[in-house]
Amino acid sequence: MSDFSDLYQDLILDHQKNPRNFGSLPDANHHADGFNPLCGDKISLDMKLDDKGVIQDIHFKGSGCAISKASASMMTTVLKGKKVEEAEHLFHEFHDMVMGKIDKAPEDLGKLKVFEGVKEYPARVKCASLAWHTMDAALKNEKDVISTDDGKGSEG
């Protein structure tokens, strides 16, 4: 048993080992790339929306730490079949949860609540939220690579 089960929950470890919806979508109509320059995490996200604004399919590719990979994988499983408004709503709830802005994780986050532990690890918040920021950009079809960094981060 480890002392890290608050962060590295079994479900997270499972998704990082066996990421779901991994790969690209040839018929995607929404796409964005995300990058976390602090640790080099990269994600490339493909989405297929129908004309009613429902996410028909969503896939991701990339490399990164366990938290960012698991977060992307679980996000794709949750968002499939959801409406754009629901996806944006979950994004804001997820974001507030990992930032520690709310005391208790909202129930409608469902299994995404396993990421609640991230709020105790400030250095890892960006890892957990990278996929969601990228999803948000994909919905808007932003061309620039989404970066979790705002220009900080010089060190040796």
Partner: peptide, 9 residues
């Protein structure tokens, strides 16, 4: 294992 996970643990 990603170095970021190593660093946290």
């Amino acid at each position: 294992i990603h170095p970021h996970d190593i660093g946290t643990i």
